[in-house]
Each structure stands twice: as structure tokens, then as C-alpha cells.
Write a protein that binds this DNA or RNA. Sequence first.
RNA 1: GUGGGCGUAGCUCAGGGGCUAGAGCACCAGAUUGUGGCUCUGGGGGUCGGGGGUUCGAAUCCCCUCGCCCACCCCA
Length: 438
Amino acid sequence: MAENAFRAPRGTRDRFPEDLVLLRHLERTARRLARNYGYGEIRPPLFEETRLFTRSLGEASDVVEKEMFTVARRGEGEEEGAGWTFRPEGTAGVARAYVQGGFAARAPLQKWFYLGPMFRYERPQKGRERQFTQFGVEAFGSASPLLDAEVVDLCVRFFQALGLGEALEVRVNTMGDPADRERWRRALRAFFEPRLGGRCADCRSRFERNVFRLLDCKVEACRRDNESAPALREHLGEESAGHHRRFLEALQALGLRAEEDPGIVRGLDYYTRSVFEVHYPPLGARSALCGGGRYDGLVEEVGGPPTPGVGFAIGFTPLELALQELGLPPQEDLRDLQEELRPQVYVVAITGGERLPALRLASRLRAEEGLRTALDAREKSPRAQFKEAGRSGARFAVVLGPEEHAACRAVVRDLQGGEEVPVGLEALGSWLRERLGA
RNA sequence: GUGGGCGUAGCUCAGGGGCUAGAGCACCAGAUUGUGGCUCUGGGGGUCGGGGGUUCGAAUCCCCUCGCCCACCCCA
């Protein structure tokens, strides 16, 4: 390759027909499950005002601090947050659309899903890309813990539909409501302030901005220090505690084994009460396939009336890795998508005189008979055409030579068995469709 | 942002100072001028990532640089 040739931007990749088979299967599985659970598709824009993300995700979140693909607003000054940012996650844009669409007043309960690319300006590595596909669902307008459980159920069923089942772990926690968190925040600040000297630089800088982040510090000394820190559950109000209890009950009723994990503290500011992750442990440090939870303050945060909400997001990049590792999904689930890549019929022109009739015949088979029909695009020899026909995976070669053309028929060769029969052009389409079961 | 590994044909890789840089796969053509998958024969394709240096001579040694991958951080 010439050294001045263009390359795809770092952290992105080209998806070619063959590897789109798996992605398309993931997409259709997601759509099917979402539809069965009553979620309708929503497609907000791929970019939003930068302010939307800084507001909803939190100034101190890693995503906002260093992972945003931001475009400056033209002409005007560079005041903070004045530009646009390619969405690093889906929830903020969907919440904004909910508010802008006026749903809070006219139809507050809305269950939506989205499917599409997200963008984060990170250093790429295995299972992490700068552009990646996410499937997410968001349900607005209900504070019921049963809905939290239903969302977890949908998520698990999605993975099960792909063949992942036994290997999955559901981990849940509660983040409390704003009042709980305020009590907890004060307790944490009181706890950490005298100990800051022994903490890492990250912790010291995060102490002021977001004291909760000290809890998921990965520095060994800080982690030990965290063991004696006050726990949220000690500060949970009656309502939050009840919500969590009923969430767990509902999970149990659904037959979902969930592990309580106080270490789950979603990195984005908007979460309240229920939070959960679905893990595939063999993936190690990157085992989280799904993250989600309740965000009762988010709609208000982006300018709407107080409206509860709950949802999750699944990144397809780590999911594809997990599936690959397990040899999933089963081949037969992908067969129809793979077959779509192959022609059913290959039209061969023997001499130059049949090129145009072959082109016309192929057009007819494609458009009028609905058959995936291939035709030599390079004006090659008959031998090379048969070779290509065999390689293409087509079942039949339709051969047009001078004699056939003169007699208004074609010779149809079965590329699996090898036998040949003459078929009149009039009847060719139905003849082929019958044998292809099309 | 920090640390590590690797860059030779479209792909996977050999070659680690000396002839015109190789193999397998893939691609193209022919053997078979109207018939594929197998086989055989031939062919196209490389500024050895880029720049500089050492040397009579560099893909090979040294320096710089770029790119990719992996790990940490964080997350999907």
C-alpha cells in the first residue's frame, strides 16, 4: 500500500459484508426483543450540544473530562460548552428528545430503544473503539421497581437469545436518591478529608469535584483505605430501601439470580437507586457487557419536569468478543444472513453476442423474479465465468450461447450436481424459483 | 495521559550486513478457443512503514519519527 494512502481513523474499522453478518444478527435480535417488551425505536441525532452531556453525565465523569468528540461552533467565541459533541452514550439524547417532544405532559410513560454508533475519544485497545455500536433501552414515566426488574430481564433475555446464558452474572446495587446521597456525601467527605494526605493525586483532585469517585479508585492503598469508608446503605432512606427491596423481589420472581455488589457505582452522574451490570467474567477486566440503572433526576436535569426513568446500554464490541470466544451464536442462526451474500443464479454469456441479452436476462431475473442473480462484470471468458459462478456459491448457472439465444432458451446447469437442461426463457423464472424454493 | 510489543506482497509469515528479497494463501491467464470446484504451468504484484546515520555494501546495525496492537486508567 502506498504510504500516503488514507487509513480509517484510529479506533474505527471498516465493516465488510462478511463481518456485518454478525452485527446485523445482533441488531435484529435486539429489535425483536425490544419490540416484544414494548419498546419502540427512537433515533435522535448522532450529535448534540456539548452542554447536554456535561450537564447529564457530570463534569467530573471520565467521559466528559477527556473522551468527547467535540466540534467547535463556527465563528462565535469559544465559550465553554458552546459546540457540539458526537454522542458518547445514548441516554442523554433520548432524555432530551423526551422533553423536547413534550411527552411528559401528553403521554408520560414512554418505552424506547436505540441502536447505533457512539463515539468516545479514548485510546483504543481490545474491546474498546472510538466508534462503537450500542443497543440501549430507556423507559420514562414510571418509578416502579418492577420496571427496573423488567429492564434487567430484557437485557438478560437478549444475551440468552444469542446463546450466552449460564456464563452471565447479574450484579445489582442501589445508589439511593438525592437525599440519601447528600447524607452519604457528607459522611464520605467527613471520612476522607482527614485522610487525603494518604491518597493518590487523582483522589485528591476528585475529592472536591466528586467524592464518590474516590470509591472506585484502583490504587491499591486507596482501595484498602476505602474498606472502612461509610456505606450508602447506612444512609438509605425508607423509600429508597423499600425500592431496592422490591427490585430484588421482582428479580427473584423473574428467576434472575442477581448478586448484590456495593462496588457498582456507575460512572455517570445521572444514576439514582437501582444500578446493575451484566458481566461475562471470562473477559476479565473488560467483562461488563451491559450497564444500566435508574435515573430519576435526569429529565429534570435536561430541562423537563421531574420524571423518573430507567434503562441500560449494551456495547456490541465486547459482546462480539465474548460471542467469538464461545463460538456463538450457532451457525444456523446466521445462515439466512450469510445466504443473502451469495447469488442464487449466475448468468453466463458464451460469446460477445450474448453479453447484452445476458445483461437483460439478469435484470429481469433480479427485478421481476426476485432472484439474486450474478453476471460477469469483467467480460471474461466463458471458462472464467463458470469458475466465478462456482466460487460465488450460486446454485444454478444460466448459460446463453448463440444457439440458445437464437432459440429463445437457455441451458441451466445445476452447479451442485452438474446436470444441464434446456429451459425456454419464458418459463425460466418460474423454473428457477420452483427449484430454489423462492 | 503512562508503560510494553510489533511494522517485509492483498493476507499469514520467513530472511538478522553481501548476487535480481522469498514461501504459502489469495488474485489473473493458459492447459480445456461452449462448462466451475481438483491438478499442472505461467504471470502480475514490494520505494522491506518513513527520514537520517554507520558501512565498499543496510530489509538486516544505530538514532529519530510515524503507524498499529496490547496493558493501565475508565467504560459498552
